[in-house]
Computed example of a mutant assay.
Amino acid sequence: MQRYIQLFSRLIFGLLLTSISFNSFAAEKIVIIVSGAEKQIYLPVKLAERLGYLKETGLNIEILSEPSGVNAVTEMLSGAAHGVVGFYDHTIDLQARGKQVQSVVQFSRSPGEAILVSTSAAASIKSPADFKGKHLGVTGLGSSTNFLTQFLASKHGVKSSDYVTLPVGSGSTFIAAMTQKKIDAGMTTEPTISRLTSSGGATILVDLRTPKVTEEALGGPYPAACLYMSTAWVNSHKAEVQKIANAFVKTLAYINTHSAEELTQVMPPEYSSANKQQYIDALAASKDMFTADGVMPDNGPETVLKVLQGFNKSVQGKKINLANTYTTEFVKAAK
């Protein structure tokens, strides 16, 4: 009888330990928000998930999607997320506002975006100098598409007060805003760009999809998509950050060694359901935007800072320490 009591006690104790371990594991969930998971500029995230590289880390990682980068930033700062896959320029903007965050894996070296002009407004908009009095679409107010639109306008002598900026999201909502003439022009990403241009609904005004055309338009390399996190969290969770970096560096290497068609086959079918060949062609044309190793491109941070200083009142006049806006520690140590 005593033996049965001992066995029963051990069983109960084991169940308690399992419960404690499970709860601890659940508490260690790492939430990463993507600023629009369906966008080709953020392809490395879904690809890493589909290839099983995130699962290989052994971490409990949850990927969430948020249409606008500025909303994703808010989620991270509120503590609802540990990291954001968005544009590097937010790290500079946030430092100017007293928040320390840093890019830990740099996905791309150009925005992968373009400013489109609707067919109905094409006659009156020949360059950003013609934005005065127009309605311009961006993913969200305070988003990177908003940053770049403001810079291109100011570069051509147009103040932000001279035009109306509308947050219209991306994908179908952006297309609807343009076809319904709510916006005259706007900045968006692939595959939305190809969907609109192929249908004759819009033409490209400013192309920032590859490093070459980006340097011509912005004066240098413009590191864009990346995984950025709170500096304090990175410093206190280096083992976890390293595992995440390993997964994404492995994914970037996969992108670098596989064709657009092969990459599309791995991605969720619904991402290319509108027109699979169009999706493949768009990816093939802009795949060069992705880094091969997650390392920040030379002179990239300087270009981004210069762009933000051109219009962003939060950054203008502030002393920005670019070395604190990114780290190559984890990507260079990645296996």
Rank of each mutant, 00 (worst) to 15 (best):
R3G: 01
R3L: 11
L7P: 01
L7M: 09
F8S: 00
L11Q: 00
G14L: 07
T18L: 14
S19E: 12
S24G: 10
F25G: 03
F25Q: 09
A27D: 15
A27N: 15
E28K: 10
K29I: 07
V34H: 07
G36R: 07
E38A: 15
E38R: 15
I41D: 00
P44N: 07
L47H: 12
L47P: 04
L47R: 11
A48L: 13
E49K: 14
R50V: 10
L51E: 11
N60G: 03
I61N: 02
E62V: 06
S65E: 07
P67W: 06
G69M: 08
V70Q: 11
V70R: 11
A72L: 08
T74V: 13
A81I: 05
A81W: 04
H82C: 00
G86P: 00
H90S: 09
T91P: 01
I92L: 07
I92D: 02
G98C: 05
S103V: 15
V104P: 08
V104G: 10
S108A: 11
S108M: 00
E113T: 13
A121Q: 06
A123M: 08
I125W: 09
K126E: 14
S127H: 12
A129N: 07
L136A: 12
T139V: 14
G140M: 07
G140T: 09
L141D: 01
L141S: 01
F147D: 05
T149V: 15
K155A: 15
Y163Q: 05
T165E: 08
L166V: 11
V168I: 08
F174P: 02
F174K: 07
I175Q: 14
T179L: 15
D184C: 07
T188V: 09
T192Q: 08
I193K: 10
R195N: 13
T197D: 10
S199V: 04
S199W: 02
G200C: 11
G201S: 13
R209G: 04
V213T: 14
E215G: 03
E216A: 15
A217W: 01
P223K: 05
A225V: 01
C226F: 05
C226K: 00
L227S: 09
L227V: 13
Y228A: 04
S230N: 11
T231I: 05
A232C: 00
A232F: 03
W233A: 00
W233G: 02
H237W: 03
K238C: 01
K243T: 02
A245G: 06
N246E: 12
V249M: 09
V249L: 11
T251H: 12
T251G: 09
Y254T: 02
N256H: 13
T257H: 03
A260F: 04
A260G: 13
T264K: 11
P269M: 06
A274G: 04
Q277G: 06
I280C: 09
D281K: 12
A282I: 00
A285W: 03
F290Q: 05
V295C: 11
D298W: 04
T303V: 00
V304I: 06
S314N: 15
A323Q: 12
N324Q: 15
Y326F: 15
E329V: 02
V331T: 05
K332T: 12
